[in-house]
Design a protein around this nucleic acid. Structure first.
Length: 715
RNA sequence: GGGGCCGUAGCUCAACGGUUAGAGCAGCAGACUCAUAAUCUGUUGGUUCCGGGUUCGAAUCCCGGCGGCCCUACCA
């Protein structure tokens, strides 16, 4: 066993805390598997490394759910934690401690850090207006209020946005009703505590932009989105009732869930330390300890600004690195409950081997934060070809020939195959270290691609028939099994079960620190009877899993796909104009002396479109039945178009520079009625009013000749 | 509109600025029968999105287009 030349590192690793309000699904698993692989890799290399996680238990959502289920929050989160732990274990995700943010350890740390933040003068008090339910006696989060959208009048809408995509504050909602009690909420003002993050601006600028703490695109993102201007104050308190920790020096108020969630990393570490007789400060206040957070891109903000800020002020270690990954898509699309691609961890386990998913994710994960796609066909092919066909096959085709003899006493000449595999070890290790699992998997599979031809060329099944070649047979199998073992060690972070089985087969376990066993062949040990290590995956199992994930009431209300956003409304109008002009225009010499200026401004460059293309655009006569200025917008008018009957379209048009609302009301226009709805700053625009001109003062709305009726199609 | 990432074989992806751009899968033609219809050999397939530039040399660096994805938004 050669020892690593690099010094032993001490590494604390966390994955984001799953919320105690829902079950683990395969999207979550990207992160926990990615992190688990990294931790197992570090352990295999002989470093001291602990994997810390916990349930995120606080907040209004938990409180409400507990009330609805008629039990205490503590019962609810205990049950959910049990389910989470079971799901993770099913995927061989091995935490060193799995705690809860609702623990005494967490509370103590929240208080300790809070005192430091107070002492640093970062806390200030401000009034905040919120809706309050006088019956349920609680402030209402956006999702617990329903009412009428102040923009489009749609009823029965949530407090933050309506189904038409208008966004607003809950206090703007008309006829608001609490979903908890049915009472009419009142607007109440309450004092909240804020952390003045701006005081830490220089520190955060320095920390995010230097060193290797963040992926470069994240550092750029933070600079462009937040650090270019003063950082906003962060509201960290919530008035009672709230499920969380009461703020000691602000009675009746609780820390907001995102204040105590990351502290949960520490609380969970503390539990681990107490169980193992370790010193907490050795992990969180020791500059020699590395701290690595693995998170999804959705919570970047909290982990790269608030959290380092809190740690800095409180005098703890700063994160060595925040590793941020993208989201999971299935078959190229967002996970969807109605399509059965919103797959729970527990559902997966009913149908498929967790090793498949661990390996498949590994082949898809790189160091960047691209989304990764689960493609069922590819999933099955990869698992079967790589793992069963190439890797496991090495053992299954040779092990039984040496069951009686064991491995040769000295390692035979293999033409340099094992040495080559050993020489790749550090490169594979670097790929793991950099979270470039995709590359690591490629390198490992290449080894299997070299090993199988070796077996083929030596044909042990032929040697077996000739008793005089028994020694050669043993040598060939010794080589094959050593090449297999080398691969199994390299794959151990991804496939711990395979490593375990390999250890049992060859009577030499693969455990922490054993990476370097891949550099020295194993000889002279007995070989146990070969047992199947991994079954082939069947596409039918995957399809059954997807079917099983569809909602039981599968009349399948099609989830509305988000419209692909491309260009702004204004720009779309510009870009479509030449097409419209071309469709309508002739080429005959004109007696009207029209100049070429318009064409020069917008040349005829659009490609030909087919009649089918043209027919895709459903243009209709429409009547403007309402028109209004949009508050805060200086180019847009909001129009309500009637296509006759009850058919309406809400359209934002960039025509304010030329038209006044009162000029338009009652007028007929032409609109594109099947333009994909597009979410804008002020709401969803559901169509487009056709107009000529390049914009600015050059805007001329198209109007049908008299006699046209709303709803008529334009051909 | 602004910002970011990306564009290489039918698909998934490789390729420190340096041979003739490579693998796997799929396809085609064979071989083998130890192994879970596994494996092996051979083979088809490329204007590296387009156009310029820098360089002895560009898939790679720079500029400009086009296309895709993501973020953000009449606030960068």
């Amino acid at each position: 066993m050669t020892e690593s030349s690099t010094a032993k590192r001490q590494i604390l690793v966390t994955a984001a805390l799953p919320y105690a309000n829902g079950h683990i699904h395969i999207g979550h698993l990207v992160e926990y598997i990615q992190t688990d692989i990294w931790v197992r890799f570090q352990k295999l290399r002989g470093h001291r490394c602990i994997y810390i996680c916990a349930d995120d238990t606080h907040g209004t959502a938990i409180m409400i759910r507990a009330r609805q289920e008629g039990r205490s929050e503590e019962e609810l989160i205990a049950d959910m934690q049990q389910a989470h732990v079971r799901d993770f274990a099913g995927f061989d995700i091995q935490f060193d401690n799995y705690g809860s943010t609702n623990s005494p350890e967490s509370r103590a740390l929240c208080e300790e850090i809070w005192a430091k933040i107070r002492a640093a003068g970062l806390v200030k008090e401000k009034d905040v207006e919120q809706l309050y339910d006088p019956v349920a006696q609680t402030f209402l989060a956006d999702r617990f209020v329903k009412g009428t959208c102040p923009y489009c009048g749609l009823t029965n809408q949530y407090g933050d946005s309506c189904d038409n995509g208008h966004t607003y504050r809950p206090t703007e909602l008309k006829d608001p009703v609490s979903t908890l009690s049915g009472a009419t909420p009142e607007v109440r003002s309450a004092k909240h505590l804020f952390i003045e993050l701006e005081q830490l601006h220089d520190f955060l600028e320095e920390w995010t932009q230097s060193g290797d703490h963040l992926q470069p695109e994240i550092a750029n993102y933070l600079k462009g989105h937040f650090l270019h201007e003063p950082l906003r104050d962060w509201d960290v308190s919530r008035p009672a009732p709230y499920f969380g920790f009461e703020i000691p020096d602000f009675p009746g108020n609780y820390w907001y869930v995102w204040y105590d969630a990351p502290i949960g990393y520490m609380g969970s570490t503390k539990q681990w330390c107490d169980r193992h007789g370790e010193n907490f400060d050795d992990w969180w206040r020791n500059p020699k300890t590395e701290i690595h957070h693995f998170i999804g891109k959705d919570i970047t903000y909290f982990h790269t600004l608030f959290w380092p800020g809190m740690l800095k002020v409180a005098g703890f270690n700063l994160p060595t690195k925040v590793h941020i990954h993208g989201f999971l898509t299935v078959g190229g699309e967002k996970m969807s409950k109605s399509k059965g691609t919103f797959i729970l961890a527990s559902t997966y386990l009913k149908h498929l081997d967790p090793s498949y998913l661990r390996y498949y994710f590994a082949t898809k994960l790189g160091p960047r934060l691209d989304d990764l796609d689960l493609e069922p066909e590819e999933f099955v092919t990869k698992v079967n070809t790589d793992l069963v066909g190439k890797v496991v096959n090495l053992a299954s085709r040779t092990a039984k020939f040496v069951e009686s003899t064991g491995l040769s006493a000295s390692y035979p000449d293999d033409g340099g195959l094992f040495a080559y595999g050993a020489s790749l070890g550090e490169e594979i290790a670097e790929a793991y270290e950099a979270c470039d699992y995709n590359k690591a998997m490629r390198l490992v599979i290449e080894l299997a691609d070299r090993a199988n031809p070796y077996v083929e060329s030596k044909a042990p099944w032929v040697l077996k028939k000739d008793p005089s070649k028994a020694a050669e047979l043993q040598d060939v199998c010794t080589v094959a099994l050593n090449l297999f073992r080398q691969i199994a060690i390299y794959l151990a972070p991804v496939l711990p079960r395979l490593a375990q089985q390999t250890g049992e087969l060859l009577n030499d376990p693969i455990g922490p620190g054993d990476w370097y066993k891949a550099y020295t062949p194993l000889v002279g040990t007995p070989v146990n009877k070969f047992q199947h290590m991994m079954k082939r995956a069947e596409i039918g199992q995957v399809l059954a899993m997807i079917e099983d994930s569809k909602p039981a009431d599968a009349a399948a209300p099609q989830t509305t796909e988000k419209a692909a956003k491309t260009m702004s409304e204004e720009n779309q109008a510009e870009n479509t104009a030449p097409e419209a002009a071309q469709a309508a225009g002739g080429v005959e010499p004109s007696p009207y002396n029209d100049g070429p200026e318009a064409l020069e401004k917008e040349p005829l460059v659009a490609e030909h479109c087919t009649i089918d293309d043209f027919l895709k655009i459903d243009m209709r006569v429409a009547r403007v039945i309402a028109a209004a200025h949009v508050e805060g917008a200086d180019k847009l008018l909001q129009l309500t178009l009637s296509l006759g009957g009850n058919e309406r379209r809400n359209v934002f048009a960039g025509i304010k520079s030329v038209y006044k609302p009162e000029d338009l009301i009652g007028q007929l226009v032409i609109c594109c009625a099947n333009l994909a709805p597009r979410k804008m700053r002020f709401g969803v625009s559901e169509g487009m009013v056709l107009a000529a001109g390049a914009g600015g003062q050059d805007i001329f709305i198209l109007r049908p000749d008299s006699g046209a009726k709303p709803g008529m199609r334009v051909h």
